[in-house]
Design a binder for these strands. Structure first.
Length: 573
DNA sequence: GCCGTTTTCGGCCCGACTGTTTTCAGTCG
């Protein structure tokens, strides 16, 4: 059984939970939690690296002891410390920490006083009114626990970026109509453009006389008010998503926006920088003793700790602070940089609009070229094109002239199980762009899946590999491939990788964008639009690309058409 | 458990809200 990074991360997380319940030094607990995060986000396969006999790079917050434990877990699948902790404490007890409102102290008290070890026992104790009798607990706490368990810990649910954005924008608009309110902005993981978000964070600036907070809790979509204070409140909307609103005075806008945007790991790192300079940073500003020295804008906060402005999408404590200090921050690509879209569908297959309608919609969004890339014949459910129908479509496209936008003749051709393409070269070579994609046999082994895609990239007529991992967020895992090999093949053959902007896909991942950039492979940010409104999804692709540190020069379709045509992948080679 | 442009020891991000307790601990973000 190979040990994955996620297994090591989970082990560290469980150790942290058990240590915390066991009243260990909180900084020791934090060290394990930090290690779990670092390992979980690491691209490098730890067990495989160690198995090769190679050294692990020095990882932040991981010293001799934790590195040793990583070795131990990778080679044996076990960790002696965890085994020991599990013997001291019923291991199921850690699931109690997931109950909102229960932390290590209360879990320990419930275990000691009532021998509560599992969710079922917790539920029974609450139902029987035994919890309120424990010191430090009361009737209200007992009711809250009961309710949390009954809701089956729904907090774990995450929302796709595009879905959460709709709720957030509507609520922000509503709050902007409050009396005496200044800025209202969406912060948190939504502002960082994470693929999915756990909750919505909104920041408002207002004075004491504003009614923004009372309006917030009175919002028609609110199902439940979790907390309600002067400067901070939390609610759950009918859709099930939690929203936190924070209100600060105008002069604290920048500091609060930075604080409320996160990520948590980034914030902690920035606060440590402030501390090293003898400053204190909180959501109200940067302070030298009692004197406020910054905080009106985010720029001023960064400047106070000696850094240039860092874009929200980079704030994950993934090297952005070091890059900022060295003056090597990327100038991230922007939506307005896109000049074209190289993946779209029409009514010829499973799209909902005509070629001309799609062209007009793309042009309306400022694009100057659009590739029509309908499906190939194997995808029968989508009425995939055979050579005959594809030639008819090519003729149709040739006859359509929409001023201001150039239409490219293309195809999204299936990569068959053996790595060959679903259409003959004779018809493919009549096209401007060939987008190749896997739509079947997601279950192949890593070796065979990788070989299949490498072979497709070797095909002289393939331009772009579409949605390289095939994942559907929350619905289908990515297929198992060696992304580094694929990226290197693309580099050696002069091919391109797609970053599919559809909010269900967002495929490439951010980490692979960085990998592609490092290997010199341009990324094409494509909408995969099946209808005219879906060109709007390009903004989510841009968000993902920015999280992957991509600049304008790293993006294929940020280049003018004339430049694209000079690439061998667009001429066939 | 980690880490060092004050340190190899002694620090480790910071504030709001709730509920229970009578001045604050626990939890959360």
């Amino acid at each position: 059984m190979p040990v994955h990074n996620a297994d090591i991360a989970r082990t560290f997380e469980e150790i942290a939970d058990l240590l915390e319940i066991g009243d260990a030094n909180p900084f020791r607990v934090r060290a394990y939690r930090n290690a779990a995060r670092v390992v979980g986000e690491l691209q490098l396969d730890i067990a495989a690296t160690l198995a090769r006999g190679a050294e692990l790079p020095k990882l932040p917050g991981i010293g001799e002891d934790l590195a040793g434990k990583m070795h131990e877990i990778a080679s044996t699948g076990h960790c002696a410390l965890l085994d020991r902790l599990r013997r001291k404490m019923p291991p199921a007890i850690t699931e109690l920490l997931r109950v909102p409102g229960l932390g290590p102290k209360r879990v320990k008290a419930l275990y000691r006083e009532l021998d509560v070890q599992t969710l079922e026992q917790l539920y029974r104790a609450a139902r029987e009114g035994r919890i309120r009798k424990v010191h430090g607990f009361g009737e209200k706490t007992e009711t809250n626990i009961l309710q949390s368990v009954e809701e089956r810990l729904s907090k774990a649910r995450r929302f796709k970026l595009a879905v959460a954005t709709q709720y957030a924008d509507a609520l922000a608009d509503y709050l902007r109509r409050s009396r005496g309110v200044g800025n209202v902005v969406v912060a948190g993981s939504l502002r960082r453009m994470r693929e999915t978000v756990g909750d919505i964070d909104i920041l408002a600036t207002a004075g004491a006389s504003s009614d923004v907070m009372s309006r917030f809790v009175a919002y028609g979509e609110v199902k439940e008010i979790l907390s309600h204070g002067d400067t901070r409140s939390s609610v759950v909307l009918k859709s099930g998503i939690q929203v936190d609103l924070r209100v600060v005075p105008q002069e604290s806008y920048g500091a609060a926006l930075h604080y409320f945007t996160g990520s948590k790991a980034h914030n902690i790192a920035i606060r440590r920088l402030a501390q090293q300079r003898g400053l204190k940073l909180n959501e109200y500003g940067v302070f030298d003793g009692k004197r406020r020295v910054a905080g009106g804008t985010e720029e001023s906060v960064f400047a106070a700790v000696g850094l240039p402005y860092i874009e929200p999408e980079l704030r994950e404590e993934h090297g952005e602070i070091e890059a900022a200090r060295a003056g090597r921050l990327p100038r991230l690509v922007e939506l307005s940089d896109l000049k074209g879209d190289l993946h779209s569908h029409t009514r010829w297959t499973d799209g909902r609009h005509s070629v001309e309608e799609m062209a007009l919609a793309a042009k309306a969004r400022g694009l100057v070229y659009l590739a029509i890339t309908d499906h190939s014949r194997r995808l029968t459910v989508a009425k995939g094109l055979d050579p005959d129908r594809l030639r008819k479509q090519i003729d149709e496209i040739a006859g359509i002239a929409v001023p201001g936008i150039t239409l490219l003749k293309g195809i999204e051709v299936d990569i068959l199980e053996d790595g060959t393409l679903d259409l003959p070269d004779s018809v493919l070579q009549e096209l401007d762009v060939v987008v190749a994609a896997v739509h079947s046999r997601f279950d192949l082994s890593r070796e065979r899946q990788t070989e299949r895609i490498l072979r497709a990239l070797d095909h002289p007529l393939v331009s772009i590999l579409a949605h390289p991992l095939g994942r559907l967020i929350d619905a289908r895992e990515p297929y198992d491939v060696d992304m580094l090999k694929i990226i290197r093949k693309a580099a050696s053959r002069g091919r391109f990788l797609e970053l599919n902007a559809h909010p269900e896909r967002l495929d490439l991942f951010d980490t692979h964008c960085r990998m592609a950039k490092d290997e010199g492979v341009l990324v094409s940010i494509n909408s995969d639009a099946h209808a005219i409104h879906e060109f709007d999804n390009l903004k989510y692709g841009i968000g993902q690309a920015r999280r992957g540190w991509l600049e304008k020069r790293d993006v294929l379709n940020a280049r003018p058409l004339a430049e694209l045509k000079r690439f061998s992948a667009f001429r066939g080679s």
